[in-house]
Amino acid sequence: MDFFTVLLLILVGAGGGVALANTLRKRAGITDIQRDSVLLLERIEKVFKVVMAEGYFSEIYNYQDQKKILYLLNDPKKAMIIVKSKVLVGFDFAKIRFQTPVNGEKKLIIESFPEPEVLSIDTDYKFYDIQAGILNHFSGADYTQILDEAKQAMNERAMQSDLPKIANNQIQYMMYQLASSMGWQLQLPEADQKQLEALKAQAEADSRLSKQLNSGSIFEK
């Protein structure tokens, strides 16, 4: 046999060996999966953000995209996504504007207080009933768009809930208690100050009621 015949037999034998190995591997249920990940750190920033309330939300998000073939036939694709999220609402203290006390007065004056905002959304997505069209298939960009829209909808739903109000009440009363424990007086902007006074009155009423319940005097009459 000449050189080319021997080389051909070697290649055929090698190919047969690879095919046999793949067949045996499939039958044995062995798969060769490789995963690589690369961590990229873009930047680190110092922040002073405080979480005051958290909420848990579930939502069914329906996605549908209509596409016409030759401007005549509809070729829709659709998917149903169940979204579960944990939303943290709080404040960015870097946005607070303070007024410096004068003459050593122990009075904390806040000129401007930020609005509550969503600090983070931890979201879990599950796709159901994915139906692609004949030519209108799902792409990676479609899935990215779906997830972005679902997250934005969850953000809007959280801000329309009671979370911002709860966070606002929490931060005002916490700052009041902190200032009082240090012998300082807290002064907020007018609207916030009225809300704080209402919270203080409610807290004092709850405290009195709790003491009466514990002492049993409320049942003596």
Score class of each variant (00 low, 15 high):
N168K: 08
V89C: 01
L119S: 09
F98K: 05
I130Q: 04
E204D: 12
V89G: 00
E156M: 15
A191T: 00
K107W: 11
A132N: 09
E197P: 05
S161L: 10
D162G: 09
F127S: 04
G104C: 04
Q193H: 13
G183R: 12
M154I: 14
S161P: 06
I134F: 12
Q193L: 15
S161T: 07
W184L: 07
Q170K: 04
H137F: 13
P164F: 02
P164Q: 03
L188R: 01
Q195M: 10
S139L: 11
I166T: 07
P164R: 02
L88R: 03
D192P: 03
F127D: 14
Y125W: 07
T144R: 15
E111I: 12
V83T: 09
V102Q: 11
E204A: 02
N155R: 06
A150D: 07
E204F: 06
E190G: 09
P114D: 02
N155W: 02
A191Y: 00
E197G: 06
M159R: 09
M175H: 00
I171F: 00
V102C: 05
A201H: 09
S139I: 13
K95L: 00
L199P: 03
K84C: 10
S139M: 15
Q187A: 00
K200P: 01
I146W: 11
L147H: 14
D148V: 11
F91G: 00
Q160H: 15
Y173L: 00
Q99V: 12
A141S: 10
S120N: 14
D122P: 03
S85R: 04
D129E: 10
R157Y: 03
I81D: 10
Q193A: 04
E149S: 11
E115D: 08
W184C: 12
F91H: 01
K86A: 12
Q193F: 04
G140P: 06
M182H: 13
G90P: 01
L199W: 03
E111D: 13
F138Y: 14
Y128P: 05
T144N: 12
Q131F: 14
K106R: 12
I81Y: 04
P189A: 05
A150V: 03
A191H: 06
N155I: 13
L199S: 01
A191D: 04
K107T: 08
Q187H: 02
G133F: 11
I121L: 03
K84M: 15
Q187I: 11
K95G: 04
